[in-house]
Design a protein around this nucleic acid. Structure first.
Lengths: 243, 243
DNA sequence: CGGCCCCTTGAAATTTATCAAGGGTTGTGG
DNA sequence: CCACAACCCTTGATAAATTTCAAGGGGCCG
């Protein structure tokens, strides 16, 4: 846990309110509950386990800053990363009573979270916050299905492009991408464990994409050269596939 | 759609009632609703699309007989099978309002289904049927996560064993496996599309398992020789991994 | 009988993993 | 301020897993 300066706290509050209000204005009582949650925001350092596999999902948290991931580790140490949790996403939100976590969630960077029981409360409501809560869950499901397709039926290059495009779409949605580029705080090892590849192969695939001028990077920043070309290469559609 | 003889209808009703009552006795009104649903059972032939990708999930159906699968097809024809739907499972059940199907569901064999709105109604109730409905959904989620691990981090042999063990566990749960053996109405092509392998490789992997006397088959029937040896080979645990 | 579907096989090509090692950067303690 | 460790990225060489291509066989059904 860590101190945030005042400016940062203000920024994160505004971010949260913008994200939660994406589907429409909140009701007064929802607003109140959101405000209360935001007052409790906390910061955790990279590597912290935010939710353990099998834990009860009863206290949704809104991720305000930083990245987290959902993962599982096999007996022999192999690891699979299921998904990434980005700012504006919820952790521990579940549409079922007594839901349990199917995998553990770890902070990938320093993260700031705020308890957001209002999300759970709104889940079955007809309000904008309710739609948002359900949209978060349904996106999560969609992303998992898309990930299965990548792992099961796509080449290394397609997997990588598909994942990068998905991350871009999601970050763009909350204002964290500019013109195809965004901060990607993942080691190649984490990326590999998400994509089901070896680190060496991930490295080479990334380099090939750079050589082909399809992506560029400096430090943690990555930039996707031509979204529509990339989307075509990986059979990627930014929106749910029906529609 | 197809005619069922009377004996078969009786058998399927009893099967449904046993499955739905697995978590405890139903309330009178639930019983009534279940009975009403069962009166409407229908049969569809193999290949029928039971739910289209993007369709509204508002009418849960209980699968009484036969197998179905959830799948998606890429632009170029590659296919990924996400999961199998076995007797006793629900199709079109969703914990969220206005949920949409993330993939399409197809009948793999001739199937018999009964509308079961009582499952949706019970989702947020404290009754035994409510627990069952939630258990069905949470199992489905668990299976999907397990499948991601298979595709991302396991070898062909591990994937195959893991899937066969999962199918065995699930069929055993509803009385459709005897002593490690069960009916497996899947072509090797479907199996391959689930496991993310080529048909040829699936075929060879299966044969190797047979040569090693780990499995045996005749026709659609498969039999798993030693469940604990197999479980060990594929890092498989029949129950949710926590516990 | 012919066609279709599914399973099987061999050979070759391709993709991906593994092994081993070196380089760069960063943070930390001497 | 330097030395060292830890971590991450990179590279080359080799091995292994998996795919692709091509073809043949068997069973089932119209």
């Amino acid at each position: 846990m860590n101190r945030l300066d005042k400016m940062e706290i203000v920024r994160l509050r505004e971010f949260a309110i913008a994200v939660l209000g994406r589907q429409g204005p909140l009701t007064p009582s929802e607003s109140e509950a959101v405000r209360a949650g935001l007052a409790e925001m906390q910061t955790f350092s990279a590597g912290t386990e935010l939710i353990a596999e099998g834990a009860a999902l009863d206290q949704p948290l809104l991720l305000l800053d930083g990245w987290a991931m959902r993962q599982r580790v096999l007996k022999d140490g192999r690891r699979q990363v299921f998904s990434f949790v980005l700012p504006g996403d919820a952790i521990g939100l579940c549409a079922r009573r007594n839901g349990l976590a199917a995998c553990s969630t770890l902070a990938l960077t320093q993260v700031t979270l705020a308890p957001m029981p209002a999300l759970a409360a709104a889940l079955h409501a007809g309000t904008a916050l309710g739609s948002l809560a359900r949209a978060l869950l349904s996106q999560e499901e969609t992303f998992l299905y898309n990930h299965v397709v990548r792992l099961g039926r796509q080449s290394a290059q397609e997997r990588l492009i598909g994942l990068l495009l998905e991350l871009h779409t999601r970050l763009d949605q909350v204002g964290l991408a500019q013109d195809g580029s965004f901060s990607l705080p993942l080691t190649q090892e984490v990326l590999s464990d998400a994509l089901g590849l070896s680190v060496v192969h991930t490295n080479r695939t990334l380099q090939q994409l750079k050589r082909d001028h399809l992506i560029a990077s400096q430090g943690n920043n990555i930039s996707l050269a031509d979204l529509s070309v990339l989307a075509d290469m990986a059979d990627y559609s930014p929106l749910p596939r029906h529609r």
